[in-house]
Structure formats: C-alpha cells, structure tokens
Computed example of a mutant assay.
Amino acid sequence: MTYEAFNDVLRDTRLPLNNGAGAMPAVGFGTLFRDLSTTTEAVKCALEVGFRHFDCAERYRNEEQVGVAFQQVFAAGLIRREDVFVTTKLWNTNHRPERVKAALEASCRRLQVDYIDCYLIHTPFAFQAGDDQDPRDVYGHVIYDGEVKLIDTWRALENLVDEGRCKSIGLSDITLDALKEIVAAARIKPAVVQIESHPYLPEWELLEFCKQHGILVLAFAPLGHGMQPNVLEDSVITGIAKRVQKTPAQVLLAWAVQRGTAFLTTSATPGHIQENFDISTLPQRAMREIKDEITTRIRFNSVVETGVPGFIPRKK
C-alpha cells in the first residue's frame, strides 16, 4: 500500500449544510432493496464498514427494518445516534400540508429515532392523498392531486425545522427549473437536492446552481444502477480503474465526491458494501478525462417526468 493511499481521507469527506445544522457525510448508503428482508443485515454491515449516512424513504416500505439495525447498533454502544446522518423522504400521497408532520413522525417511529437529519420531498409531484401509495385510475394512470402546490408542501417542511423535528430539508427528483422556483420562494432554503447523477448524467448546470446557493447535491444511481449502456463498463472508466488500481465502481464514486457531491450506493453484499466505502482520491488528470471524454448522455430513471420512481417495483 502506498503512503498516499494510506493517508487518503476522501471517504471521510463531510459536506456542511447551508443552515448550520452540521454536515452530511459524502459517502452515503441507500436503503432501497429488491428483497426487503435483507435490509436489517445490510444496514448493520454498512454501519460496521464505516458508512455514517443513510438514505431512507417511507415509499421503500422498509423503514422498520432500517430502524431495527439502528437500534441494535446504537444499543450495543458501538456507534452513537448523533454520529449517523439519517435522511428520509415524504411520499407523494402526503403532500397536503396537514399530512406532512404526521408522515415525518411515522417515519421517526419506524426508524426508531427522535429526529431526522434531513427530510426530503421524495418527488415534486403530489399524488391523490391517502394510504394507497400508488393511486391509479381504471386505466392504470397515476391520480395526481392538482390542488396542492409544491411551495405549500415546502412551507410545511419549514415548520418541521422550526419545531426541531428535522435538522434540514430538501428536495428529490427535481428539475433545475422547479428547484429555482422553490429557492426563490423559500424562507428556509433547501439544504440538499437528491438527483440521479453519474458521468452519463453529470448535471453540471444543476450542480453549479446548487453550489452558488450552498445546496448539497446528493447523487443516486452513481454507478448507473446496472442499466444499459453500463457506465461501469465505459472504456474511460475502466482505463482509469486499471491505472489507479481501483475498481470501476470506486472510480465513479471517487469522481462523485471530488466534484463536490455526496452519493448513495446500495448493496446487500458485504464485499460490495466494503468496496463502495473504500474509495481514494483520483488524479486531476482522471477527473478531466471523465469530464471531457465521456459524451454519452442518458437518464435511467424517468421519475422527474412522472413522480413515479423507476427503480421501485409497483406493489402488485
């Protein structure tokens, strides 16, 4: 092992939140699993490996299992609650302002935590209010709620910050234009924006806007979510990986942090969880190569157009 690699602190990067409520670890662990039964063990493994940032959502339907992992690890005295950054999200059926606080409190109960570090609006689309997370008409089309505006939901989140129920608030799956509207109207500015981002969807313009306003960009699908074309197999990425003796995944994740974003990866496999944590700083030449030589542009998740996450299977 080289001296440089031994002292590499990239994976310890913490990004300060714009409202003074601490910092988000750039290296994050997502909790959307195909097999929900793997949740508790995967989260415990991630905590043991060193992950201190966990991204949850009521829509994932496994906050209880995440909460079990948190409780077991905190109770063992190995890690303190205040050392872990917990994000969760308000689902589309709870956008009406009167439903927001109850939704957050239900997430806290399931996660077995007293507060949320960052509460995100899962998508900017309001669905028909109610207990059915996926309201559809007889033709299978989503039933949207045209009576609630995003800024109304945002105001309800601002109140949660005032009450100390969450330390920061943000948005997910939002376009730059919609984000600009909220930033212009917000009393409490978004601290975090979670979007799909990887070298095939670098979102430079949105990232630049967020940097100007002190908003953290949190990238999901930083490895392309295993979809085609596969960014992990891109010749630029595999060439860099060979040169720096890291895996293509580690190159992509290092790129994410070095450009100033946080990222989320998800795995139930201990080896992959360890690999995704074990990132090291890339040479500037590699950063330039990724920016200049990768020209493929593709979005894998169409959620920004519909509010329906492409990676979450519909409940039969």
Rank of each mutant, 00 (worst) to 15 (best):
V43C: 11
A42Y: 07
A42D: 15
L17E: 03
D35E: 15
G30W: 08
A42E: 11
Y60Q: 12
G30D: 06
A23P: 02
P25W: 02
R80T: 02
G67Q: 06
F70N: 02
N18A: 09
A21V: 04
L15G: 04
E41R: 10
L47W: 07
A76T: 03
R34G: 13
E58H: 15
E48Q: 14
T39A: 13
E64S: 15
R61W: 09
E58N: 14
N18S: 15
H53C: 07
N18H: 03
I79S: 02
R80P: 01
V49G: 06
T40G: 12
F70K: 00
A46Y: 08
C45Y: 11
C56F: 07
A23C: 05
G28H: 08
A26N: 01
Q72T: 11
G20Q: 04
F74M: 03
G28W: 01
A75N: 10
Y60G: 05
I79K: 10
Q65G: 08
G28E: 00
H53Y: 01
G67I: 03
L47G: 05
R14V: 07
V43D: 13
A26I: 02
A21G: 06
E58V: 12
N19M: 00
C45I: 09
H53F: 00
A46G: 12
R34N: 12
L32G: 09
R14F: 03
T40H: 11
F51Q: 04
T39Q: 11
T40Q: 15
G22P: 05
A75S: 13
E48W: 07
R52A: 02
E48S: 12
T40C: 15
F33T: 12
E41C: 12
F70A: 02
N19I: 04
P16T: 09
C56D: 11
G28V: 04
A46V: 11
F29S: 07
G22K: 06
L47H: 07
L32A: 15
R59D: 07
H53W: 01
R52C: 00
P16E: 05
N19E: 04
R59E: 12
A76W: 01
E58L: 14
R14W: 03
C45M: 13
A42L: 12
H53E: 00
A57N: 09
T31L: 10
F29H: 08
T39H: 10
G67A: 09
Q65V: 05
L36Q: 14
L78E: 03
F29C: 08
T38W: 06
N19W: 01
D55N: 12
F54G: 00
V43A: 11
V68C: 08
P16V: 08
G67M: 06
V66M: 06
P16G: 07
T31C: 13
F74P: 01
Q71S: 15
N62W: 07
L47I: 11
F29A: 08
A23N: 02
V27C: 08
M24T: 02
A76Q: 09
A46C: 12
P25D: 02
Q71G: 05
F74A: 00
L36D: 14
F74D: 02
R14P: 02
V27W: 00
V49Q: 09
A75P: 01
Q72H: 11
A21Q: 13
G20M: 04
R80Y: 01
